[in-house]
Design a protein around this nucleic acid. Structure first.
Lengths: 223, 223
DNA sequence: CGAGAAATGAAACGATCGTTTGGTTATCCT
DNA sequence: AGGATAACCAAACGATCGTTTCATTTCTCG
């Protein structure tokens, strides 16, 4: 991967085009003309079109993983870990918005290259182990399935690429704080009631309406 | 749009291919050979390749919107509305998993056709108004920004297409129940304390660690 | 200044794609 | 049965795409 000045322009133009039209629907001519060169000239910087995709995507992918790796090595209480993980996730998404959007749309979807799926998996596992830590310490007593809770948080965060706009009215810090408050505390401020009964349905304080089939008896299913 | 028997095969094959490789990277030859016909023969069913995309996507998009429209017309308490909305959202995603995945990846992203963005917008607005209803009734006293809370829930739900696998170990009812419990109640079962102080940070019961910059003073910014 | 390397221009290639055309077979209806 | 209509075959077209090749310009630095 070369280093000269035009290279940054090229990667930025590629990222912008990939985000708007998708990788497959973006032609090298689109990128070249955005920079002001001929499409053949791109091959002094790349060996194939896919090189551009990886160049766009590598930065934020490695950054976001590094952040949670460092966080996992601390001994902060789980609540604080979740708060900081949420913040750094939103921060990386904001600071590298176009790049990160391309990653989530083109890599985290479709492509199954083992290098990237391993990174996704490691990130998920580290975040889940934080949640699990909170469950075991008794702080997250409302969680029944740590993996689902973790995936819910990751979903909220990554979905930012579908609606967040840099320079828009919502600041990243504001968003991450509210996400974190919501994830940790939920919508409802519970009335002090069943303390020693960590019921699965403890979060539902409205008995006004008969619920329609709370939880089906599950069919057994392994793996 | 024609009706014969092969038409269903074609749409299913298209959906499967679109989900795996994306719309732009899928050739009509891929779809035709999956059904066992020549690619030119597809044009007795369609006028252009995009027709296939819309045929794949229309069903679940209209269904998921219809469900929340009907729900909005009831006078159930907000908590119950959220629970039912979550359930039906997961249900539609599960029952039409491939179709819905294509919608979220190809329509809710990139494409800006006004018909679909209007549907997305209406769905978001209806769900947000439920949240807002709960805030005004006092039930959702922990919410400071209804739109962000709504987008967080939608993100968790739609991210299902990135990790859920039909026939896998997790049942759809189980997932939607846990999502809903998490969204309504959060990770933490709060200890009865500040009842009449709906502080922004009421959800953070761990004062062990000094938070790093809670919320920056925001730069003013309109629109 | 001038040689050598880096960067870009300019054109062409083979492959593939969406679409069209026209003919052939199968299916349905009364 | 037989005609009409739908379904499909088979081939080809023009356009576009990723990539290659080679000539030319621009930059670097001793």
């Amino acid at each position: 991967m070369p280093r000269p000045s035009r290279w940054n322009e090229i990667v930025e133009a590629a990222a912008e085009a990939f985000r708007t039209n998708g990788f497959a629907a973006t032609s090298l001519e689109d990128i070249a003309s955005a920079v002001g060169i001929w499409k053949g000239s791109l091959y002094h910087y790349i060996n194939s079109k896919e090189d551009l995709l990886f160049a766009v995507v590598r930065g934020p992918a490695e950054e976001i993983l590094k952040q949670i790796q460092e966080l996992s090595e601390t001994d902060l209480p789980p609540t604080e870990k979740i708060r900081r993980a949420t913040r750094s996730h939103v921060k990386v998404l904001e600071s590298n918005f176009v790049y990160a959007s391309v990653y989530l749309q083109e890599i985290a979807g479709r492509r199954k290259l083992p290098e990237w799926t391993a990174m996704d998996r490691e990130y998920l596992d580290l975040l889940e182990s934080i949640v699990r830590e909170g469950v075991e310490s008794g702080e997250f007593s409302a969680v029944t399935n740590p993996r689902i809770a973790t995936l819910a948080l990751i979903g909220s965060l990554n979905w930012l690429t579908h609606w967040y706009r840099p320079g828009g009215p919502l600041h990243a810090d504001e968003i991450s704080d509210q996400f974190c408050d919501l994830f940790l505390g939920g919508l409802i401020v519970r009335t002090p009631r069943s303390k020693s009964k960590p019921n699965q349905k403890a979060a539902t304080p409205s008995p006004t309406v008969t619920p329609l089939k709370t939880t089906k008896p599950r069919a057994k299913r392994t793996a």
